[in-house]
Amino acid sequence: MNFDLLLASAITLSVPLVLAALGGAIHRRAGIVNIGLEGHMILGALIGAVVSGISGNWALGALAGFIAGGFSGLLMNVIITRLKGNEIIVGLGYNIVMFGVIGYVLRAAFGVSGTLQFEGLQRMPKIDIPVIADIPVLGALVSGKDPLFWLCIVLVPFLAWALKATTWGVRLRATGASEAASASLGLRTLGIRDGAGIVAGALAALGGVALSLGTVGLFNENMTAGRGFVALAAFYFGRSRPLPTALACLLFGFFDALQIRLQTVGGFSPDIISTLPYIAVVVVLAFTGIRQSRRGARALS
């Protein structure tokens, strides 16, 4: 098995995860668990493919997907914050609606069942770095990647910095940690949460763009394949901090790449590997839960 190939494919597969998980992490820091990442992703994938297909310009497609995702994130967030909908149910329902609408529109407006292809669709370019491309490991790590990979490289430290060092970041964390106290200090907590919802939707949609305008260059209604939930697992695993979250995505992307490899080689089951992110989250939750419950003074029953 060629390790460089495996590594390169792990990184490619983790780009959509990282984008969506970073969005989810930001939303989580603002106090909302975003179950709708999957829906935002599929929307981004579609819009990205359609706009790139019509304009023949991948950047326009990515931008359109990003903006559509922002609206999508805002819409879902408003239902949670203003209409006081339970975040879990709203998120699950939102996914169902989003997939329903997209599946419906594909058939009713485009007349296709599931897969949408455009003649003029422009995929994202792969950026080869001369010299480095030939270095083992390092070449696989950084050469031949699309622009969204480089966006991730920039985004992770940027978000970590922004959470710490900007007024937006401080207020976002304060709102997520204690909405009542933040509101009593005059913070516009609903607005802050809406902003985080927009970021979550936009980044997750960009993750979708990475799928449709990445290697394949088409849209399929099943192309997210649960990645929104893997992203959810990733930010739970990374405690909603950008770098650990991104590393969790890398790990899960590696599982994914391994699984694809093993499919051709045989041996370990891809289905079992696909459950690893979720098992990891349960383990983390169990750990923290047990540790916390050791402290309470009030007895349970």
């Binding site: 149910i89 169902i96 609606v97 997939f99 329903g100 599946g103």
Partner: peptide, 28 residues
């Protein structure tokens, strides 16, 4: 000529608004 996905749209919307509090905006 009606894609079956319209059913998902209806179901998902019911699910969302089953938990949302809908009040008259002004009152809110």
């Amino acid at each position: 000529n009606l894609p079956v996905q319209i059913i998902d749209v209806l179901q998902g919307t019911v699910m969302i608004f089953a938990v949302a509090t809908i009040a008259i905006p002004q009152l809110r």
